[in-house]
Design a protein around this nucleic acid. Structure first.
Lengths: 226, 226, 226, 226
DNA sequence: TATGAATGAGCGTTCATTCAT
DNA sequence: AATGAATGAACGCTCATTCAT
């Protein structure tokens, strides 16, 4: 009978495996540092040496993991884009209740899983660098923006199909639902850090009111006055 | 014998005045070129030589008008910020009809006087460079963003005060009204130039639906289904 | 009647012409400095800053004249290759005396017009860098080496045709005539600077003996013993 | 029971000896790889990692055998210099026939034992790097070039002393005999790899004609016309 | 002994800024 | 006022060398 447990998954037996795991970790640290600095200062104003320093390695080491600053930038985008989107798609697909509630839930979760996290800085980053990295901009548009809009449009369409919402232009409605979310993170990483606190309203309260107004704007009958 | 002199008003008599006017023109050409290039490529990726070339002067000449690239950038922002805002404030103040119609009118005019013009590129530009020019960001926030929000909040408050709108949080409502406008110009100058045409909906139709949904979301009673 | 002379050719009247002439001079100084340093230390071991310093300008200035180190290198080769070759071709074509004397004259002139000048360093330079700049090597082979061999082969053929030389393989003979010349400059710029003086024989005496031996080797009858 | 042991001489009994032999082999592989790469690309353009890879070891391992890239380079030169020279010296010393034939034999053997082998690349390598490694250049001059010239001068002197050759300046004659040999290998490893085949004549035919012309140039009486 | 990850000095190149004309 | 040549600080990237395993 075998009484001892398998080797712990987090302490690999062989040196090779340990080294490989270390490399994964390092790459992740570099990507995190790069995301933070690119978001904070923009691509051009961020020096690779700063990224390396913030990740705790030397300048040369960074180039062991990414062949160029541009490759690092693209890796940052690829790494942070689309991850939470897939989660949201699953959650929406599984939802079974009334669509009005789904809208509230979707917006609430958007904040906890993306808008309130560091990854949200990506939105501002891409806005600022799109002209200099058109292929990345297209990638982001195709892999993140378009699917996001499709997802929201699906929610609106669901409401229409179930007789809960007015038969509006669902595509335009999706844009109008997404815009305040996008704008919120854009502000959060651009003007907000430069302005005295209190200039912006509390994000969660703002989002709640957004959801409320969207539902009112889409519903067949005006809800009771709050 | 020459009896009439058309360009009299534009051709000052004294050489000094003429020189001064020439200077104004040159500076204006440089600011226009700089705005276009900064918006297109970002601050760091725009070389002063390009700006000078696009304005039709040499690199050295640019520095006769602006002491540094940074000063040029700040002049671009100061020159283009707030211009259409004053018009909008006057137009809103003079309006006398129903608030719902004012919302539609405000959004329509925002597009023709700012959102659809080249100056709208400024919004994206400041978002991208805010971290590197915090004083500019504060200036823009104070002179453009805050007054814009105040203006829109005033409209909402007018609707509430006149019993046309529900007593919502007017400050948050202002954010939600402004966000799709801001997002529209942000997209127009970042992702849109990289994406195949047709990806974004027609701006004016989108804005019309936005105004409609805002009014529905704020109204006491649901309007008749369109 | 016009008594005053034309403006001196070397002091152009217009500032533009003066500036243009200055640029020519600067470019020439940079090319000279680059030739000397590339020959002395090789391409890779020569820093562009050294070249600039030796030409009396700053590092940045060099890049106003040549877009890259590689372009500078190629310009050095193009500038110094082929120039004396054309002279030699003319001189040979115009020669009317006995071929044996032409051989002596050709070798004598080769030394004064190429082998003994700084430009001769080019030979060693290209030998060392051919593998790293294959297009330059091909250019040099086609524009300098091949025509040189053709020129010498023509001399040999002339001797054969006029019944002065034995009917040898003229192409091989050309190689054998050129080889000691090439070797002389190769040594002059590689081992010679590292060795105590006197290690190599006097070039002009060596070349005289070379010409003598070549003529003896090619002649129909052995000349009188010297 | 093992009664015979073929590789006895090559498989030392003690582990220490085996390790030592292994070390010799590794070092030899590294030196071969280094020679090939240094000749092909020059010292500066060859990365130690390439040498290690070509020798089948990692970069770190190379530094266990050679303390620096420079030491590796010097070892390459010391290892490959002078090897065939000793053979040639013995062969010349043992020769008993007519000097004209000795010249032919010497040149023929030079090709089979050096000029036609990979080791001949060393000549071009040293020419290119002499300025950066003056001590090596001096070493090569003293240990290879000078003895080679002395050897050839001895051959010429032998011809003179035996009344076969004219009383020429033997030192200069030696240079003129060696130059085409040196030039041949120089070309072989510099321009030849970049040029279309057929640009250079067949080495062995060229060398035969060289020997023939040398003998004619040195002989007392002109040989019969071929 | 052998590895490959890590380092950091060094170089090519760019570009905002200055200055002589 | 206008030019464009000149500057030099700064940055991305390379690669010989070191070191922990």
């Amino acid at each position: 009978m075998q009484t001892h447990s398998y080797p712990a998954a987090r302490a690999p037996a062989t040196p090779a495996a340990r080294r490989s795991q270390r490399k994964q970790v390092r790459a992740g640290e570099l990507l995190d540092a790069a995301l933070a600095l690119f978001v904070e200062k923009g691509y051009a104003a961020t020096r690779v040496e700063e990224v390396a320093a913030q990740a705790g390695v030397s300048k040369g080491t960074l180039f062991l993991y990414f062949p160029s600053k541009e490759a690092l930038f693209k890796a940052v985008v690829h790494e942070n884009a689309g991850r939470p989107l897939a989660d949201a798609q699953r959650q929406v697909a599984e939802y079974a209740g009334p669509t009005a509630e789904l809208v509230h839930e979707f917006i609430r979760r958007w904040w906890t899983q993306y808008g309130g996290t560091p990854a949200a800085g990506l939105t501002k980053l891409i806005i600022g660098e799109a002209a200099n990295f058109p292929d990345l901009a297209r990638y982001y548009q195709g892999e993140v923006v378009q699917p996001s809009h499709d997802l929201v449009r699906g929610i609106v369409q669901r409401g229409i199909d179930r007789g809960e919402f007015r038969p509006v232009d669902a595509k335009a409605a999706a844009h109008l639902i997404v815009a305040p979310l996008a704008q919120l993170v854009t502000w959060r990483f651009s003007l907000a850090p430069c302005c005295p606190p209190g200039t912006l309203p509390d994000p969660q309260a703002l989002l709640a009111q957004h959801a409320d107004m969207v539902v009112r704007g889409l519903s067949l009958h005006a809800p009771e006055t709050a």
